[in-house]
Design a binder for these strands. Structure first.
Lengths: 236, 236
DNA sequence: GGCGTGCCCTAACTTAGATCAATACCGTTC
DNA sequence: GAACGGTATTGATCTAAGTTAGGGCACGCC
């Protein structure tokens, strides 16, 4: 159906499409993007589907007076936006936070959801996972203080990066600027800096040369009220 | 597919299923629920799909120490949760904020998405609409002050209720408690009360006997940085 | 080498919103 | 009609975070 996913794959292609990985690998074009590059601009048509391959990117919202909020931090393996599934215009801008590599597939010869139920289910699960991540972020924005917020962000990123083999039990590359962390957690970069100092002085973490090291993960998770359950892909 | 939507409708049913309305009307069972009733409890299986018919309900998140955030306010016509589309457990609790009437349809003989592409597309559009509403709420939580937040909430509710003929150009029934507004906007009910007073004293609104009246909608929208575009169902 | 630019870090002061506490105002129920 | 539970309202005080304004360091560029 043209409102969900367009025409079917060229017949005889023979590929299995049961996961998002299947969808991208093979047909995707890779691009290197600099820091602060706009991947999706509001009101543009969704021409392609994008997957982040390396680096950090963000979905964000701007206010007319310059206030900004990063609504989602994207890590490698994440689909930049699911708007390509409907024939809509871009509603949420997406931009890189660091230099990135992204994979792009054209929207036009997109496989039909009906003939690839496994893919449709995988897309649905991903969308719902994004939703619970968003809910958790809302809880942070509305009810956690800055130190808890930062702790929670670190726990969440570690967990998500760990799922794609980019984090160990206690460390990962964190190259996001403090300004961007501020816009993610709804505070100023000055206050991010202060809160970072608290976490450092409590001995919970160190952050240097773009690497975050967690010294006491249990304590950090307790401080953040972090429960990894919401990130687990329950494939029951 | 059992991970997306289960078995097909009994053959020969003959109904068209091109909208969410089609899905519910006919096969749904109606229930009257009191205020503060749990519609969906975390970790339960999704047995049914629910649509709110009258009243206000909420998706929310709790922290172990009692802090709460309402992540979504549901108005009549809204689907309580889309988790029923996958065979997952309830991840986000849903509860009524006022006495409500809801429509319930069993998950088991749910129509197959493949045979009802119009329905699948409608569901997808609804989910994406919820996402942009969530993003806008995040902007509120992270970057708007309490008066702006309240103004924005009122503008958004008016717009959404207006789409289902439950609001006029300048008024609608607002029976949500100040406590719940606080948990929606990430502030205390005391501060909601004070911000409400500001809006009243500025002459922008009155709120009495459960009815909100907007006296200067343009001014309220300007104050809130409200742009109704994100709510419009662009059916291009 | 000097200079700009983008981050990081810190301090001093201000403010939005939290907390605590008291009173008022319902609509129910006995 | 009294008693009660839930909600709204307001005041006084406190605090987390904002604002403003620096200085520092690393980098790429002319």
């Amino acid at each position: 159906m043209n409102t969900t996913v367009r025409s079917a794959l060229p017949a005889g292609d023979g590929r299995r499409l049961d996961s998002i990985h299947d969808l991208f690998t093979g047909s995707m074009r890779e691009r290197e993007l600099p820091k602060r590059y706009d991947v999706l601009r509001p009101d543009d048509a969704h021409q392609s589907a994008y997957m982040l391959l390396t680096g950090y990117a963000s979905r964000y919202r701007l206010m007319s007076d310059g206030r900004r909020l990063i609504t989602t931090i994207l890590v490698p393996g994440d689909v930049c936006d699911f708007g390509f599934l409907t024939n809509s215009r871009v509603r949420r801008p997406v931009a890189t936070l660091t230099p990135c590599r992204i994979g792009e597939i054209s929207c036009n010869p997109l496989p039909d959801s009906a003939s690839w139920p496994g893919l449709a289910a995988a897309l649905l699960r991903r969308m719902q996972r994004d939703d619970v991540i968003a809910d958790e972020r809302m809880l942070t924005l509305g009810r956690r203080n800055a130190v808890e917020a930062l702790a929670h962000l670190f726990c969440e990123l570690r967990e998500r990066l760990s799922a794609v083999k980019l984090a160990t039990a206690d460390s990962f590359a964190l190259t996001i600027a403090q300004d961007d962390m501020g816009d993610t957690l709804g505070v100023t970069s000055v206050h991010i800096n202060r809160s970072l100092k608290v976490l450092r002085e409590t001995g919970l973490i160190t952050l240097e040369h773009g690497t975050l090291t967690i010294h006491d993960r249990a304590a950090l998770e307790r401080l953040a009220h972090f429960d990894p359950a919401y990130l687990r892909d329950e494939q029951d």
